[in-house]
Design a protein around this nucleic acid. Structure first.
Length: 329
DNA sequence: AACTTTTACAACCGCATCATT
DNA sequence: AAATGATGCGGTTGTAAAAGT
């Protein structure tokens, strides 16, 4: 369809609005309503295009706009909605009274997105970023783990170069430090018929410059994510990440006394009762906070950026300081 | 104090979509 | 059905203020 030009730019002012212009716009709209935005500037005595007036009104001058810092609840809501809606800022704004799509978009890009990245979470998929995790922290921790040395003979060294396998091994180790990792893994492989012997082309190379393709990454993230972290309440993740190699058995029944059980209410549980926490909270808050979300310190929005950031240390997926995350942003 | 870099956010641009003719 | 106009939306840019050196 034909697209009309934004406005006749000849003689029209651009850039920041001055208080006098704001007053003219407010006065006019309060008296006449916005009506036709194209004719509004002329009628209101403004040297602006209609589009600029509409934007100024909807994003700044509208009386029902709530200004000021985003509360923690708002931030939590934004993250949750974004995980479902993606960059549908207007749809997100519709669920946050008093906030504009532009404001939410800016807040996302300047605060939330960066924090998620710092915490190793992909702000697009809301899943842990395995391109960072597998190739640095996981690899280093894995290679430093003496107990894994025997696994190379069990699985072959190529298998340990597979990020998915590395994560699986680390997960098993983290879940049960008392057990022999070889025993754990063998039991797990037997239960799930894991294809340890892969063809060479299926083994990702272990360099930072060869990040897996999107589909691979999504698939890998989905597999590990589902098995390791359960339901994030993340529609994007769930849609794209149907588990495959792990099979349908999420309960890891081979180790009923120690390994996690994914419950329908998104809680990550250990059957011996030693751990029980929800990843919904993890995803919707900066980190797995020891402070309940309904605690006063969060509700009143008084938590500072630093305070919030401090919880990132509790996140399971921590990015090594030596890793320059800006390279991946 | 001066300069540079980073951050925050208002504003703009261009495309998509809907309504009207 | 096609053309046109108006508005909505998301990505991007510009710039003032803050922070760092």
């Amino acid at each position: 369809m034909g697209r009309s030009p934004c406005c006749d730019k000849n003689g029209l002012k651009r850039g920041p609005w001055i208080p006098e212009e704001d007053m003219k716009l407010i006065t006019y709209i309060q008296t006449h309503g916005p009506g036709n935005w194209r004719t509004l500037p002329k009628n209101a005595g403004l040297q602006r295009c209609g589009k600029s007036c509409r934007l100024r009104w909807t994003n700044y001058l509208r009386p029902d706009i709530k200004r000021g810092r985003f509360s923690f609840e708002e931030e939590e809501t934004i993250i949750q909605l974004h995980s479902v809606l993606g960059n549908k800022w207007s749809a997100i704004a519709a669920r946050l009274p008093g906030r504009t799509d532009n404001e939410i978009k800016n807040f996302w890009n300047t605060h939330i997105r960066k924090r998620l990245l710092r915490n190793g979470i992909d702000p697009v998929t809301h899943a842990p970023r395995l391109d960072l995790l597998d190739l640095s922290s996981i690899l280093s921790s894995t290679l430093c783990n003496q107990s894994l040395l025997g696994l190379s003979s069990l699985l072959g060294t190529e298998a340990l170069l597979n990020p998915e396998m590395l994560r699986l091994v680390n997960t098993l180790l983290a879940l049960n430090k008392q057990e022999n990792p070889e025993t754990l893994l063998q039991q797990y492989l037997q239960q799930n018929q894991f294809q340890a012997a892969q063809t060479p082309q299926e083994v990702p190379t272990c360099t930072t410059s060869t990040a897996p393709s999107m589909n691979q990454a999504q698939l890998m993230q989905g597999e590990v994510l589902q098995s390791e972290m359960g339901n994030f309440g993340c529609q994007n993740c769930q849609q794209n990440m149907a588990p495959s190699s792990l099979g349908d058995n999420y309960n890891f029944v081979s180790q009923p006394n120690h390994v996690p059980l994914m419950s329908e209410n998104s809680n990550f549980q250990f059957l011996d009762g030693s751990h029980n926490f929800s990843f919904d909270s993890v995803m919707s808050t900066p980190m797995s906070s020891p402070t309940p979300l309904n605690s006063p310190s969060f509700i009143n929005g008084s938590s500072t950026e630093d305070e919030r950031e401090s919880f990132s240390s509790l996140l399971k997926f921590e990015i090594p300081e030596s890793l320059d995350i800006s390279d991946f942003m």
